[in-house]
Each structure stands twice: as C-alpha cells, then as structure tokens.
Write a protein that binds this DNA or RNA. Structure first.
Length: 504
DNA sequence: TTAGGGTTAG
C-alpha cells in the first residue's frame, strides 16, 4: 500500500512532502526497508532517489555510516547514483568522503573515474591533501586515471587555497602521475589560473609553453578572457592581435569575450562600437552576444538601451534564451522597478519559456531589495511548488540575508533550519551571512548561536576565515562566555596545525 | 571541465 509513496514516478505530492513521508515511514517501520521487503522492489525504487540516500547519510551518526549502508542493503549502486549522492553531499565534505570510502569496500560495486574525480574534488575543497593524493594513487592503481580533468580539479583546488605556485609544479609533473600533458590539459590549467585571477601567472606560463603545446584559438581565448576578468582590456586586445599574427582566426567566442570585457571595465562606448562593428562586418551574432549587451548596458544603468537591444534581437534573427530573460529581469530589478521585472517574468512564461532557479532567485532578490519581504517569501513558496525548479542554496542565501538585514534573525534562522526540508545544504556563504548577523543586536544569546554555527560549519568541512574566528571569539569573551571561547580556540588551532584527514 | 551569456553587495 505504500508503493505509490516510494515510486519514482509519483507526480502529485510535492517533492519535499514526499521526502518527509519517506523519512517518516523509515522511522516508523525501519524493518520494512532493510529486511522485510524483497530486495528487488526496495532497491529498484530507492536506487532512483539520490536525495533520499543523501538524507539517510546525513542522519546517520555512526562513523562508518554502518546504519545507512545496512538500510541500503538492497540498493543497486551505480556510478550514476553514487555521483548524484556525492553531488547532493557537496556541502558536507566529511560525510561525502565517508560515504565514498564505505562504498569502496562494497563486494560488487566499484567506483569509476568520475566518482574518483568527485571524491578528489571534495578532498581538495577540505584541503585534505593527504587524502587527495591517496585517492589519486588508488585511482591510478585501478587504471581509472588520472585524466586531464582530474588534474584540472586538483590544480583548481590548490589555486583556490592560495597555492598557485604549487599548482604550477603539479601541472608540470602530471605526466609522472601517468597523465599525458597535451594542449587540452594546458588549456584547462591556464583557464584555472585565469578564473582565479592569476592572469599574470597564466600569461607567463603561456609565453614559455605556447609553442611546445601548439597554442590554439581556445588558448588565446582563455588568456584574453583572463585579462578581461581583471579589467585589463588593452592586454586582451594585445592577445587578440597576437593570435591573428600567428595565423589563428578569432572565433565568435573571442569577440564575445572582448565585448564582455569592455562592459566589465566600464568602457560602454567601446562596447557599443565593438558591437556595431561586429554587426557591420557581417559577424553572425549569437544569443550570447545579445545577452552580454543587454546585461552590460542594464547594469551600467542604461535600461532603455538594454530594452531596445532586447526588443531588436528577434528582428535581427536571434531568439532570446532564458539567460537573456534573466539578464533583463535582473537589470530591471536593479536599475528600474521590480514590478517591471515581474511583468517580464510573466511575459516570458506566456511565450513558453520555463523560468529556472536563476530567474526565480533574481526576482526574489528584487522583491527583497524593494523591501517586499512577504512577497519574496510568497515567491519562494511558488518556486517550491514549481516541479521544474527547487530553490537552491543561492535562493536561500538571498532570503536569509535580507531577513537578517531586516532584523528578523529568528525568521532567518528558521529558513536556514528548514532549507529545502534538508534537500539543500548550506554553503560557506550561508554560514558567513548568519554568523555576521548574530552581531547586530549585541545580545549574548546571539553570540552563543554564532559560536554554535561556527562549530557546525567546521564539522561540515568548511574553513572559516581568521576574521570570522576572531570576531566570534571576541564576542564570546566580551559577553562572558569564556568556556565556549576556549573550545572554539581549540578548534581553530587544530585546524591550523593539523593537516586535515579523514583516515582512508 | 579545453573558450564566450543570467544569481552576492556594500
């Protein structure tokens, strides 16, 4: 009789309700899932729901996740399922790694390349380099890699942790780990450096190796984009010139990169000239070009110009995408009026476009910004009812931030506690927003909450900034919570001194 | 995950 609740094709109850029901059933009838049901039935049904499994893992407090694996005894583990579960557990690294590890001893299932990549990425985010390299050599022993993508992940994590020099060494030695160094891995690494704003470093590396790797259009685009990201459009133009001199043909992506670069650097006149030149010279503009221009003019406050380009694009043979609508909606929220943004939201739905999480989030932010907290909350409920898209962590962060700013700390904490009925895990920003909010009322109780949040985030594998630690510590000391402060100090020094590891 | 467009905000 419960089959319809466990079925993967259920259509009527909302997603979150379904989850609650499942958890409730699990609590009421633990045997039903683990023993009394024939394996076939429970496994095929459960195995289609990574959210359900992720939830079990999060609720399991045994170190080895014994409870969860027992409950999942009938599950048919597949690469797809395991990857999806790891993705769900993204913001709870230690649990994700424990899950990976316990499945590694499974009698029939074996991790694949993509799963190792996920685990390595998570270990890197935790700055648990020992585990990262252990996983890498295990991956190699099993002949599952490492691949260039694995190294893109590893170097990205090192750069993000402020270890760009180390990442260069890693890139230069990747062949020693059994991974070929080719143009694609070179491009990927340059992109990692550029996206982390280490453009000078990327450029030096590019100068040294571009002949050896036979740099192509993509390589030049990556470097040009890097210069644009740090608003140095003259250097981007230089790169463009150099690529032409080398006999490489710039692509539409190249022009779109430059165009975006002008907007980012506040060079509106240049952007407009560049855009018109692209058209004049018979360049076939695409939806990305138009989206760039709509967004660029809009955020610069030129709302009418943005609207005109938006209206004109169809006549010029290019249909807007959801992203184009999102750009316009955001611009109207920021520089015009949230009611006009809502009108565009309705218009896009009428034309058959399906709003995505970004669309909703942008509108919700617009409403919050206009001080319409109640309507923003209503809109989030509407989003939850939309089967096509659930609120994500960004959505929650916006709502929590504005609730806290409005002095509604309790409401903010309430939303935090309920995040997607557990379907959405808070990230580093969420914790920073909430902890920051605990200082505005200067109440001793709030600081205790801040302390608990800090402990919780460390437990989930996030690394708080020194600033956050100091702030919370000072607050606790000033409000006479010496004991708690000492506890937090211990956590801080443990984080600083010991390499993080999760004992594989 | 080899390049380009929408989500933070003061």
């Amino acid at each position: 009789m419960f089959h319809h609740l466990f079925g993967s094709t259920t259509s009527s109850p909302a997603k979150t309700n379904r989850l609650h029901l499942r958890l409730l059933l699990l609590l009421l009838q633990p045997k039903r899932l683990s023993h009394s049901q024939p394996n076939k039935t429970s496994s095929s049904l459960q195995s289609e729901d990574p959210l359900f499994i992720a939830q079990l893992i999060l609720n399991d407090n045994t170190k080895a996740l014994a409870l969860t694996l027992e409950k999942c005894s009938g599950v048919h583990w597949s690469t797809h399922l395991v990857d999806a579960v790891l993705k769900r557990l993204w913001n709870h690294g230690p649990k994700a790694l424990r899950f990976f590890e316990s499945l590694d001893r499974h009698p029939t299932y074996q991790h694949s390349t993509s799963t190792f990549d996920y685990a390595i990425d998570i270990a890197g985010r935790l700055r648990d380099y020992k585990t990262l390299w252990t996983l890498l050599s295990r991956m190699r022993r099993r002949r599952l890699g490492p691949t260039p993508k694995t190294f893109a992940i590893i170097t990205e994590r090192y750069v993000a942790a402020g270890k760009a020099d180390r990442s260069v060494k890693i890139f230069l030695s990747m062949h020693e780990h059994g991974c070929p160094q080719d143009l694609s891995s070179f491009n990927m690494f340059l992109d990692v450096l550029c996206k982390s704003k280490r453009v000078e470093m990327a450029h030096s590396l590019f100068k040294v190796f571009n002949r050896r790797f036979r740099a192509d259009t993509i390589t030049y685009n990556i470097i040009a984009n890097g210069w644009c990201l740090i608003k140095r459009t003259p250097k981007a133009l230089e790169t463009l010139k150099e690529m032409v001199e080398r006999g490489l043909t710039p692509s539409l992506a190249t022009y779109n990169i430059l165009l975006k670069g002008f907007f980012r650097a506040g060079q509106l006149k240049e952007a407009w000239q560049f855009f018109t030149q692209m058209k004049k010279r018979g360049c076939e503009l695409d939806v990305i070009t138009y989206t760039t221009v709509v967004h660029g003019f809009g955020v610069a406050g030129e709302v009418e110009k943005a609207r005109r380009v938006f209206r004109g694009m169809i006549g010029e043979g290019c249909l807007p995408s959801v992203a184009t609508y999102n750009a316009l909606v955001q611009v109207l929220c920021k520089k015009d009026n949230v009611e006009n943004a809502l009108a565009v939201f309705d218009e896009m739905a009428k034309k058959g476009y399906v709003p995505n999480a970004t669309t909703y989030t942008v509108i919700i932010r617009g409403l919050c910004h206009a001080g319409e907290m109640d309507r923003a909350m209503e809109f989030m409920e509407r989003m939850k009812d939309d089967d096509q898209c659930e609120p994500n962590v960004q959505t929650y962060n916006v709502v929590i931030r504005y609730l806290c700013d409005a002095g509604e700390l309790e409401k903010g904490l309430d939303v935090f506690g309920k995040m997607g009925g557990g379907a959405c895990l808070p990230n580093l920003d969420t914790y920073n927003i909430l902890i920051g909010a605990m200082f505005v009322r200067k109440r001793s109780d709030d600081l205790l909450v801040a302390g608990r949040l800090l402990m919780e985030m460390v437990d989930k594998g996030f690394i708080p900034r020194k600033f956050t630690f100091n702030r919370v510590l000072n607050g606790l000391l000033l409000t006479g919570n010496q004991g708690f402060a000492k506890e937090i100090l211990r956590v801080q020094s443990r984080l600083r001194r010991l390499p993080r590891e999760f004992k594989l």
